[in-house]
Structures are given as C-alpha cells and as structure tokens.
Simulated assay, not measured.
Amino acid sequence: MNKFIKLAAHRIIRVVGRMLYRKHIWLISDRFWCAGDNGEAFFKFLQSKPINSVFAVSKSSSDYERLKKIGKVVPYDSPEHKLLLCIADVSASSHDCHIEGHPETPQFFLSHGITTRDYHDYYNKMNHRNYHTIVASEQEMDLITKPPYNLNAEQVFLTGYPRYDYLVNERSEKIITVAFTWRSYLWNLRKEDFKKTDYYTIYSSIFYSEELIRMITSHGYSIRVKLHPETERFRDEFSLPVGIILWDENTSYSEIYEKTSLMITDYSSCIYDFVYLKKPIIYYQPDYQHIVDSGIGPQYIYDYKDSGMGEVTTTVDELKKCVKAYLETDCKMRPIYEKRANDFFEYRDRNNCNRVYKEMLKILCKE
C-alpha cells in the first residue's frame, strides 16, 4: 500500500509542481555522499548547453562546495531535492537507487561500471516504461537486452560513458594501485570482525608478501590501496606495512587512473576505465572458486581468462610473476590485452557526453 501511496503522491506533486515551478530541470547525481562519476562528468558537459541542470549531493560531502563552482547544486534528500525528483524533466544518475522509480519522469541510469556479468536482478528491479540506460560496448548491449534482463533495445543507448571524455593518460607515476571491489557479506559487518573475513585475508596476502613488496620498491615503484566506497568504513582496520598507503578517500578515481601505472584488482569493473587508457591490470582472485561454489557473488562469474583485460592469478606466487614481468617492461600493456580493449570499446572520441545528451533530447521530444 505504501508503494501506491507514494506513487499517487508523486503524481499529484508532479502535476501541481510543474504548473507552479515552470523551470525545466534536469536533475543529475552520483552517489549521495560523493560525485566523481558519470553524473558529474555529464553535469560539467551540460554547463555549455541551454539546459537548467541541477546536481544533488550531500551537503556534508567535500564535493558539495566544489560542484557549486561548476553549476547549481542542491543538498541530497533536502526538501528542494525531493521536489525536483517529482517535477524534473529528466532524472539521471550513475547509481540507480538515486533516481526514483516513477514512470512519469524519464529516468536515465548513467551507469557506474561496465556490465559484462549477470546483473539482471539489479536492472529488472528498477525497470519501467520510462527507464533508460547507457552502455559503452556492443557486448554490453547484447547482454542486457536479452533474457533474463527485461530491458528492450529502445531503452539502451550505446553512447560510451560520460566520464571517459575526461580521462587523460599524460601523467603516469611509478605507482601500483590495489583496488578490490566489495563483497555482499560485508554489509552490516561489525568493524571488529573485519579482519576475520576472507576479504581482509586476501588483501593481507599481498601486503605481507615481503618478496613482492621488495621487488616492487626495488624498481622504484610505490604501492597504494584504493578502498571501494562501501568499504571505506573499515579504513582504520587496515594494518599496512611501512611503504604501503591508502589513497585518500577524496581522491577522484580519474586522478588515480591517471597517476597509476599498473593496477591489481579482483573483480572490480573500475578496471575498464584503466584499460581505456591502455594501461595494464592484473586480476588477483584466490577466492574465485569459492564465489562460484557458494553462490555469494554470481555477478562476479565471468570468463576472465579468455575475455578479461589482464592476466588472471590465484596465488601470490602467480601474482609476483606477473608483476615482475610488467616491472621489466615499464608497465607496458601487453598486445593481447590492448587488442581486447580496442575491440571492446565502441568509442574513443571524447564525444560520449554529447551522445547521451542527444538521446535524452530525443526521449523528451517524445513526451
């Protein structure tokens, strides 16, 4: 019943609000506590267009004042933000949970990570007749417009990601970044239990491999760790050896990609931004078989060896061997993975924002 009440209230507010509030608003966001994703990139682009765009982010976020220098910003979840959710011409976000599932408002999921694995539950939950999303490759388009996804081809636009328009590869430093995605079992986990998890054990197997660390530092490289936003709350639980540091949580992903020469990840989709810059990655997946057998992470199941963008390792010894090979070539991406990256991405012309913009205009013209 609450769902129907909410929907009815939205319809009433939308009708009345759009009569009284005659500004045509495009409401944009990323995560509620931070920007730096496709939402921000598209918001920057819109400042040069005849569009009244508004970005929503928490007022306590370090991005709030920064974005105010770019354009109009409202505090996330404030009365004004809630009103704009109802009356905006379009609502667009890189995270689905921040665009209300109301079919009266055209909604664009600007996506957060490349979809090469099974996320149909995620998409199907939010889908409705006025729901749209973007992809960066034909492979993604083919995946999410077929069962078990309930999206059709008219809802999915092959535009490329807005944030890719702003990626640059001109200031790499001798930095190796370790960046893992999160695990569902970390939800609601007490901080004092974090070090007991397999997740922390896997991280530690890298940190406390003296041979690996010595090899990296002897080549003049440093090691940094980028925590997934959902694991930032465990930041103080990480006990890191001297010489390994955590990236500041306010450092943008784009800056990390630009400065990093080699990335070590597990299953994170952030690697696609990195290989877009033609930089090498190594997968470190000692828990892959456990994930497959247990069913705790079906979204991580993928043919990494034949379709991934880097070498797949499952032990520290395998990881050391791969890292050593890259250090000896100044972290140059191997041809096999450069070809896979070139074949994967549809566009590299820095015109992704404009393609998204044109698709939105087409949808609004149909309204």
Results as ranks from 00 to 15, higher is better:
3 K>H: 05
4 F>N: 14
4 F>V: 12
9 A>V: 15
10 H>P: 08
12 I>G: 07
12 I>K: 12
17 G>P: 02
19 M>V: 13
19 M>Q: 12
22 R>G: 01
24 H>A: 06
27 L>W: 02
30 D>F: 10
32 F>R: 11
34 C>I: 10
34 C>W: 10
35 A>G: 00
35 A>V: 04
38 N>L: 12
41 A>G: 02
41 A>P: 02
45 F>N: 07
46 L>N: 00
50 P>L: 06
51 I>V: 14
54 V>F: 02
58 S>L: 12
65 E>W: 12
71 G>Q: 00
72 K>C: 04
73 V>L: 05
75 P>E: 15
76 Y>H: 09
78 S>H: 12
79 P>F: 11
81 H>C: 02
84 L>T: 03
85 L>N: 10
87 I>Y: 04
94 S>W: 02
96 D>S: 14
98 H>P: 05
103 P>K: 09
106 P>K: 11
106 P>F: 15
109 F>I: 13
112 H>N: 14
112 H>E: 15
115 T>I: 14
121 D>Y: 14
124 N>C: 07
125 K>E: 15
130 N>S: 15
133 T>P: 04
137 S>R: 13
137 S>A: 14
141 M>W: 11
142 D>M: 04
143 L>N: 13
146 K>I: 02
153 A>W: 12
158 L>V: 03
159 T>I: 08
160 G>Y: 15
160 G>I: 12
161 Y>L: 15
164 Y>I: 07
178 V>M: 01
178 V>C: 00
182 W>I: 10
182 W>E: 03
183 R>M: 13
184 S>F: 12
184 S>H: 11
194 F>C: 05
198 D>Y: 14
200 Y>P: 00
203 Y>L: 07
207 F>L: 05
208 Y>C: 02
208 Y>S: 02
211 E>Q: 11
215 M>Y: 05
216 I>M: 01
216 I>L: 00
217 T>L: 00
218 S>V: 02
219 H>D: 06
223 I>A: 00
227 L>I: 03
227 L>N: 00
228 H>M: 13
230 E>V: 15
232 E>C: 11
232 E>T: 11
235 R>D: 08
237 E>H: 04
239 S>F: 06
242 V>S: 01
242 V>F: 00
242 V>H: 01
248 D>K: 04
248 D>V: 04
249 E>D: 10
252 S>Y: 03
252 S>M: 09
253 Y>F: 11
258 E>P: 02
260 T>F: 01
263 M>W: 01
272 Y>D: 09
273 D>Y: 06
273 D>S: 10
274 F>L: 08
282 I>G: 01
282 I>K: 01
283 Y>V: 07
284 Y>E: 09
286 P>C: 02
290 H>M: 14
292 V>I: 15
300 Y>V: 13
301 I>P: 00
308 G>N: 09
311 E>Y: 13
312 V>N: 07
315 T>S: 14
319 L>E: 01
324 K>N: 14
325 A>N: 07
330 D>C: 13
333 M>Y: 04
334 R>C: 01
334 R>E: 03
335 P>N: 04
335 P>F: 03
341 A>G: 06
342 N>T: 08
342 N>G: 07
343 D>C: 13
350 R>K: 13
350 R>F: 01
351 N>W: 05
352 N>R: 11
354 N>D: 07
355 R>K: 12
356 V>M: 05
358 K>S: 03
360 M>N: 06
360 M>A: 06
360 M>L: 09
361 L>G: 14
363 I>Q: 07
364 L>F: 12
366 K>S: 13
